[in-house]
Design a protein around this nucleic acid. Structure first.
Lengths: 231, 231
DNA sequence: GTCTATATGCCGATAGAC
DNA sequence: GTCTATCGGCATATAGAC
């Protein structure tokens, strides 16, 4: 069961290289030759594993879907047991990436979501799946904090709002090359949460949390199929 | 002072074509040949006016800077005299563009802000100038509504937050091909404003009744070119 | 300012030996 | 599965007549 000490396999090296280069330079601006050089792979091997550059992009996006929890959400959640603090720990993760790159590399998924031509349905499907996984993870935090939030509040749409704030903040910080707009956006999101949790929605009942899971209720999206979700 | 009925000059035709194609397909994916065909201009004429494709991009971004007030802000502000409603009228403008394009074309500035390589300083400078013009216009609304907002609130950063919500919402709607995420984000921004204006910072003057903002209300323009409508 | 023809290079993708 | 060599095409940009 111990992992063998070999260098990563060719296919994984290609995905790793593409993950970095698409993040740094985008999809169209990254040439296959660049990927080959970085991965130290020859052209023939590339087309043995991937039928095209776009097929590699799909593998990259699948890699992001699978890596979201172990590499983003779980480390962020480990920062605090408080569910709302966990939301902001996720945002702090993206802030760190901005800082480390001089505010030049933002969210790789967001970048691709705006770059990829609209007629590549399969690619956009995987982009949407990435967003869905992200918001679903945030939603688990919001659900855990439901007692502090107004009862009429829709936590699914609030999780989308959190993603909106992250992506919009990253975009402005990249344009300005300053972390300021990102921080400003997160501060306002923080204030929104404070106002929501302070709003006198009702006297808090001492009723214990629900035991009955409703059949059509909020699903855990991590087991959703990646190819059947859109629309 | 009547506008002469001539066809647009070559330079303007090139900019118009590029505005549309960069909006639809992005910068790298748009070939010069495509621009020439759409503008009905020959290669020689193109390089008479622009030293390179990137020089045309700079002209396009300058076009957006100059068009922001007449083609986006003023029409939106005409929807309501209430300054906070005007903020949401601007957001409704972008909603309309999403709807008209099946949620495929978003904000052209945001798209370019994430696509253009980070080492093109001049381009990013003009992208930031576009964002600055946008948030400055929003800030005039917030300043006009200052009596309804908490005294400690920083209106500059709130105007950046409004842009963040617009851009993040557009991005998610493009990925999902549904207007839902955009609407959800704007709803939460609305709720944030309501909480801010309701917070008991001091005695407040009479709040005017809030009319329902029909997103993208009655259009009075019929002969504006498509590309002129979008910022 | 406009036109046609073309230079030059990189692009994604392939052929075929090993 | 890996390697070298290369294809055909499209990219941006230019030359030079008119």
């Amino acid at each position: 069961m111990a992992a063998p000490p070999t260098t990563p396999e060719t296919r994984e090296r290609l995905i790793d290289a593409a993950v970095f280069l698409f993040w740094q330079n985008g999809y169209a601006a990254t040439g296959v030759a660049e990927i080959l050089a970085r991965a130290k792979v020859n052209s023939g091997s590339f087309y043995h594993f991937f039928r095209s550059k776009e097929a590699l992009l799909l593998a990259v996006l699948d890699w992001y879907v699978r890596g979201l929890k172990p590499f983003v959400m779980q480390p962020a959640f480990a920062q605090s047991p408080d569910p709302i603090e966990r939301v902001f720990a996720v945002l702090a993760f993206y802030r760190q990436n901005l800082i480390k790159t001089g505010c030049t590399y933002g969210c790789p998924i967001g970048r691709l979501a705006l770059e990829i031509p609209e007629n590549r349905a399969e690619v956009h499907h995987l982009l949407a799946a990435n967003f869905d996984g992200w918001t679903a993870a945030i939603e688990t935090c919001l659900d855990a904090a439901r007692d502090r939030l107004p009862p009429d509040l829709d936590r699914t749409s609030l999780s989308q709002f959190v993603l909106t704030v992250m992506e919009g903040g990253v975009m402005q910080s990249r344009a300005h090359r300053r972390i300021g707009p990102f921080d400003a956006s997160v501060r306002h999101l923080r204030r929104y949460f404070e106002l929501l949790t302070q709003s006198p929605h009702h006297a808090r009942p001492v009723t214990p949390p629900r035991p009955i899971p409703r059949p059509g209720g909020p699903r855990k999206t991590t087991h959703r199929s990646l190819t059947q979700e859109l629309l």
